[in-house]
């Protein structure tokens, strides 16, 4: 009986890994999809969008399964609410990647050539911020003492993303050939992407507290 309980828990550990893999994959898909959009390769963009929708579905299924398992099997009762919150937050990052790509698909912003490099850099910073929080979360489950090795990178990438976002907004608003509605439309896109890094930083702040609580 004990053995089967242990096996079940190893299963849960694997499911957590799979779920975090999905968040990480969503980041890679996001970055390549944005790259495809910027190079006007809409076919590839569409394919990435479909992939990320599938990844999000898989992530949701894993999250629901984990939430149920944590409650039904009363696993890690002392950290259960924190782990569930972490799951929800990581899932929201995955949703945001998908959401921003949807915006691209629906609104088709006109990202003119001068913005391309900065926009690529912005999406890279955002994906790195999320990747750092994924690594921190993995460490939280596997080796709590090594969380600090990863978590400090989240604010770094968030700051970088803020800097690039500011630069992008400045270059958008300094242009005379765009109307105000066009400028505001582009600014919204910069903000949509930048918000993913902000959200990653919020999650990292909460994760820090979970770590302190578990080490007590």
């Amino acid at each position: 009986m004990e053995f089967s309980i242990l096996k079940k828990k190893l299963g849960i550990s694997r499911q957590f890994d799979d779920f975090l893999d999905k968040v990480s994959e969503a980041g890679i898909l996001f970055e390549t999809a944005v790259g495809a959009y910027l190079s006007d390769n809409m076919e590839s963009f569409k394919k990435k969008l479909e992939d990320i929708i599938e990844t999000e579905h898989d992530g949701d299924a894993l999250r629901r399964g984990l939430e149920e398992a944590l409650y039904v099997q009363t696993i890690i009762p002392e950290s259960r609410s924190d782990v569930l919150e972490l799951l929800e937050n990581m899932d929201s990052l995955l949703d945001k990647f998908k959401g921003v790509l949807w915006y691209f698909d629906i609104e088709r912003p006109n990202l003119f050539h001068e913005l391309t490099e900065d926009f690529k850099e912005l999406s890279h910073c955002v994906v790195e911020a999320v990747e750092s929080i994924v690594r921190s979360s993995r460490a939280f489950f596997k080796d709590i003492s090594s969380v600090s090795d990863h978590i400090h990178k989240v604010p770094y990438w968030e700051t970088q993303s803020d800097k690039v976002a500011t630069r992008l907004q400045k270059s958008i608003f300094q242009r005379d050939d765009l109307s105000l509605d066009q400028k505001m439309h582009l600014r919204d896109f910069v903000k949509h992407v930048d918000k993913i890094a902000d959200r990653a930083e919020d999650v990292s702040d909460k994760l820090r507290i979970y770590v302190i609580k578990r080490s007590l």
Binding site: K9, S13, I75, I76
Partner: peptide
């Protein structure tokens, strides 16, 4: 624990037993 570094679920199971 600091040497063996069991993951959260393994530690949970070990503590429970």
């Amino acid at each position: 624990i600091s040497r063996l570094k069991p993951d959260m679920f393994k530690l949970d199971s070990m503590t429970r037993n």
